[in-house]
């Protein structure tokens, strides 16, 4: 390494990967990972979310799993917690939807209302 830019690049790249150990302030995405969720494909949804975040160099987003919230027929369910906002719950998420949620909601800040739980109740 001969330049400051290179140090900064390594810093940013690695920070993205390990920031979850220090930063608690950012966005949190919780994927329902009970048996029902996993059976409905929650794992693929989670992998898609992680992949999309990595592709777009998004830091300070925590991806966690959560238990069953009781609406197993609507799984996979994904909750998005933006700082200072009500949580938004997406239902029947698939890989494609997951990627779009990351782009539209998490990055651009526009929740995709038609996929949220309100439309199914």
């Amino acid at each position: 390494m001969k330049t400051l830019e290179e140090l900064e690049r390594i810093r940013k790249e690695t920070l993205e990967k390990i920031n979850l150990r220090k930063d608690r302030s950012g966005v949190r995405i919780a994927v329902g990972m009970a048996t029902c969720g996993i059976a409905a494909g929650a794992r693929q949804v989670m992998m898609a979310i992680l992949d999309e975040l990595a592709k777009r160099n998004v830091t300070n987003v925590l991806v966690t799993e959560t238990g069953c919230i009781g609406m197993c027929k609507l799984e996979p369910i994904v909750d998005v917690y933006m700082p200072g906002q009500e949580k938004v719950t997406y239902v029947k998420v698939d890989e494609k939807k997951a990627r779009q949620i990351v782009v539209e909601h998490v990055i651009n800040g526009h929740p995709i209302r038609e996929w949220t739980i309100e439309n199914y109740e």
Binding site: L4, L7, I10, R11, E13, T14, L15, K17, I18, N19, R21, K22
Partner: peptide, 25 residues
């Protein structure tokens, strides 16, 4: 307890060698 001490990139991620860079430049 926060970084893997055997991986310099993790040290760099939490501002390792940034002070050295600042001092030198």
């Amino acid at each position: 307890g926060v970084i893997n001490p055997e991986d310099i990139r993790e040290a760099i991620a939490f501002d390792g060698y940034k002070a050295l860079a600042k001092v030198l430049t």
